[in-house]
Design a protein around this nucleic acid. Structure first.
Lengths: 213, 213
DNA sequence: CAGATATTAGCACGACCGTTCGTGCAGTTT
DNA sequence: AAACTGCACGAACGGTCGTGCTAATATCTG
């Protein structure tokens, strides 16, 4: 039968595509999606330029595929580990700590992929920016929803605005990433962790909530 | 006499240099310092490629000059307007509001020049990154010093850490800029303004301090 | 005026860019 | 075995890049 999943040719094709994207996210997190050149990827991976090109069809499609690949890596590194943390305040905090760990561990060698690439494309309308904006909204929504659940559960003060709080928390995360990479030091992460906890405690219904231990 | 300041030749040279840099900061704030090509600047300004090149000597020198030019513009747009605001809490708040206004007004068409360019170069060691890091430290120091003065004057609680607070405030400013540009809407600025005030009030010795009106 | 000096233009270079094309080869289907 | 499909290859396209030369031009100095 036509085992469409057992075709060795397309399997091999997907494997090289994966290899290309693995290298692509590395480069882009350091130098940006514009510095992603097809020729360079080909050289780095010992492939031909046209071979790499054929796997994506255009430069922009390569960039979009790179964003999708980075989103997958981000989901695995940041979101997946907190899947078994109970919803609410604990999860909100876990998400933030997980993000700090992700940035600290240089899952992408240039720090957070999306910080780098958002800044690069935020003022350039197009498919890449749209994809990045969708990723950003997704991540912000994740934090905000956790905070909303926390408030609904009575862990946060009723007058707390989950959107405002999520905004502030994420702002702290991103500046920590930015400073750590720019100054090449780890101290901003400590400052961010401290600040994070302080911000959450200030809005917690019970400042000595065990989730904020 | 050798009126070195009245030489029309070098004067003309500095004028074109200025024109080049004026365009350069615009481009760089939208597309980054890498997208700054000498040929493109020449075309945009009706000059020859070699003419533009001669004025700077190398691509990196052009990038560094662009950073210096942006720093000057930033100082004029953000720092200068608060020069007559009294030191302390009022100045700290004025600095933040001035920054928001600067981002909002698109003094650089791509939002904050340094947000864009820091993300581009933060993971690339070199003279450009060093220059950018120096600018960042300078700006952070300005906010932090204002907060330190505020605490010394008794406007902030004694247990407030000016560095931590400056970190959080600046984080809020930058995420406002990032979201506003990425989503192409102005609402993040309102959120940032609210958040800013709330953060300062939480650390103020007198929550109804007139500087936080 | 002549001559020194500084800015700009014109042109060419080698390198790399994204892209297209024709071809070969490995795997699948008949 | 023959026909077909899909991936990767090498070569080449027109363009743009940064960067050197050499002239031409404008300004200042005597």
């Amino acid at each position: 039968m036509a085992g469409s999943t057992t075709d060795g040719r397309v399997l091999r094709g997907e494997e090289t595509r994966r290899a290309v994207l693995r290298r692509a996210v590395e480069i882009a997190s350091v130098e940006g999606l514009d510095a992603l050149s097809i020729g360079r990827l080909a050289t780095d991976l010992g492939l031909s330029k046209s071979g790499v090109f054929a796997g994506f069809g255009s430069k922009e499609e390569l960039q979009l595929a790179t964003v999708r690949a980075a989103r997958r890596i981000f989901a695995d590194a940041v979101v997946a580990p907190v899947a078994d943390t109970p919803p609410g305040l604990a999860r909100a905090r876990a998400l933030c700590e997980s993000w700090l760990a992700y940035s600290r561990a240089r899952v992408f060698p240039g720090g957070c992929f999306f910080f780098e690439v958002n800044a690069e494309f935020d003022a350039r309308p197009g498919a890449v920016r749209d994809a990045l904006a969708a990723c950003a909204r997704e991540w912000h929504g994740l934090v905000q929803d956790a905070l909303a659940e926390a408030r609904a559960a009575g862990s946060l003060r009723p007058d707390t605005d989950p959107a405002d709080l999520a905004f502030t928390l994420i702002a702290v995360l991103e500046l920590a990433n930015s400073q750590a990479v720019l100054y090449d030091e780890a101290t901003p992460y400590d400052r961010a962790g401290r600040t994070l906890l302080r911000l959450l405690r200030a809005e917690a219904a019970d400042p000595s909530d065990p989730a904020l231990g």
